[in-house]
Design a binder for these strands. Structure first.
Lengths: 140, 140
DNA sequence: GTACATGCAAAGGGTTTGCAAACGG
DNA sequence: CCGTTTGCAAACCCTTTGCATGTAC
């Protein structure tokens, strides 16, 4: 029922080169919203002949086909994750760790806000930047 | 009661060069969240000897002193506005026009969401990407 | 076989920085 | 004055692209 990233590639009829298979594996195994450089490094561990330009091109291809979602968190270069259910992100500003959460009430509210302003909502971004409570007093 | 950007600079004791005065004027007169290039162009109309590096440096200075807020909307280079009350943005994805709105209920909810996840909220980003309703059917 | 994907290196945006000259307090 | 700020151009980072070569289907 739940297609893997590789399944989705096949359904789209994408030509599956060795490099793409490796990148698909890396992305499927990642849960940490890696950036392009991280994907490249992880891919290079499997097959060191993969160029970073290929990683960029492949990621863009997947993004254009709605297989990957791009995030541009404050202070980071673009980070990616496989598309899944709608959710938002909390970024630990100390470690860069990303956690996910859902909030359907807020989702509905934003649609309404846009409507009241005379717009139809296409997309929206909700990101929380925070520090772990237990460490808060060591803040600086 | 409400300090202007220039007042704030003076209170901070910033050295007010001719260039900085011009940039302050441009920023104070802007309501459209300009990017660095736009600020530079507008500044150049007043005094054409202002270099873009100076604009970058001045904007960074103001940002570091909490006089300016930086936004990185999807698909745009960084855009700035003078700091004011807390508010969020709706970006017209066709024209790039930015509108503002407030939603204190959502603000409170996000603080709570972070808390439930074991974090203290430092900052958050809420951006709506939308198209005007009257134009919606001409979408493409 | 052929159109498409790759690696490399060069080019591209947007932004920063080193330097000598100019300037503000 | 003297440390700060400036303009210029070079450097920077991340990303894209042109080209000759390699490869999936």
């Amino acid at each position: 029922m739940m297609d893997t990233l590789l399944d989705k590639c096949n359904k789209l009829g994408l030509k599956m080169t060795e490099q793409r298979k490796v990148i698909v594996k890396v992305l499927s195994d990642s849960t940490d919203h890696p950036d392009v450089e991280s994907v490249h490094k992880r891919a290079a561990k499997i097959d060191k002949r993969i160029g970073i330009a290929t990683v960029y091109r492949t990621i863009k291809l997947f993004e254009d086909n709605n297989l990957l979602e791009k995030h541009e968190f404050k202070g980071y270069s673009s980070r990616y994750e496989t598309v899944r259910e709608n959710h938002h992100h909390l970024i630990d500003v100390r470690s860069g760790k990303v956690s996910e959460f859902r909030n359907t009430l807020v989702d509905a509210m934003q649609k309404q806000v846009a409507k009241e302003m005379g717009y139809k909502l296409i997309d929206y971004r909700l990101e929380l930047y925070a520090v772990p409570i237990e460490n808060e007093r060591t803040k600086k």
